[in-house]
């Protein structure tokens, strides 16, 4: 890379820590000593990352759940809702981060709104699929027993839709953790910030990238555990 090109990168010159003396660090290497000494500096970005992801997925889930119930009750709303959420899903988050800033300002909300918009389609599609996959026989039987629409939804359809709903949550979680690494563009912090500050320093990239992956793996395992816990009748089956 030419010196000119380097100068055009805004943060390339910013260094997370002083890096003089030791040759490993000066060479942008993978330095165990540096990693051990500086691991603590990644705590704040990690917490920001977790907070942003959880907030976005939880709010996204609440909205998607409401929309899915609406689409389930009023079939004609399905197509417009799914088309709208699909467009929101297709718009790249990195573009959304900047398109939102003139409206809500730079910071947490710009990051969160973009991520919420992104999760809506995944969650909406999975919740409605789960509700639709309930066998008609089961619903007929429940109606025959005198269940009202509300009871049918709460006691039959939603419990039976749990596998699809949780599958959607797992996808939404892992993708949001990945996308939150770009949320620093919105001024929302997260693990992407240290990565971009010194993208040439291997130790830095490995820690921050590794923490992202670790976070995704742990959250996926937790949701997998929830799935097993929430579906005791499925434990016997091999799914």
């Amino acid at each position: 890379m030419s010196p000119d090109a380097l100068a055009t990168l805004p943060f390339a010159q910013v260094e997370i820590e002083q890096r003089s003396g030791e040759s490993c660090i000066a060479n942008d290497g993978l330095c165990p000593g540096w990693i051990v000494d500086n691991l603590g500096d990644y705590a704040t970005p990690l917490v920001e990352h977790i907070y942003l992801t959880l907030f976005s997925v939880v709010v996204g889930f609440v909205i998607a759940f409401g929309l899915a119930i609406l689409a389930h009750r009023r079939a004609w709303t399905m197509r417009p809702i799914s088309a709208t959420t699909q467009i929101l899903y297709t718009i790249p988050s990195i573009a959304a981060f900047f398109l939102l800033q003139p409206i809500v300002g730079r910071g947490f909300m710009a990051g969160a709104i973009a991520l919420i918009a992104y999760t809506l389609f995944i969650l909406f599609a999975n919740i409605t699929t789960g509700l639709q996959n309930v066998p008609a026989d089961v619903k007929d039987a429940a109606r025959g027993m005198g269940l009202t629409d509300g009871q049918l939804l709460r006691q039959v359809e939603l419990p039976m839709a749990i596998p699809e709903i949780l599958a959607g949550l797992r996808i939404a979680m892992t993708t949001t953790i990945g996308l939150a690494a770009l949320a620093f563009f919105a001024g929302a912090g997260g693990l992407g910030e240290p990565i971009e500050q010194d993208i040439f320093f291997k130790s830095n990239v490995v820690i921050a990238g590794g923490l992202c992956l670790l976070l995704a793996a742990i959250s996926d395992l937790i949701l997998l555990g929830v799935q097993r816990f929430a579906l005791p009748w499925r434990r016997a089956q091999a799914t």
Partner: peptide
């Protein structure tokens, strides 16, 4: 597909940049 989904693209790019160059 599951593992692929979890890899942050920025981290992937950073990995390539820091290990293989731009």
């Amino acid at each position: 597909s599951n593992v692929g989904r979890a890899v942050p693209t920025l981290a992937l790019l950073a990995f390539f940049v820091s290990f293989l160059g731009i």
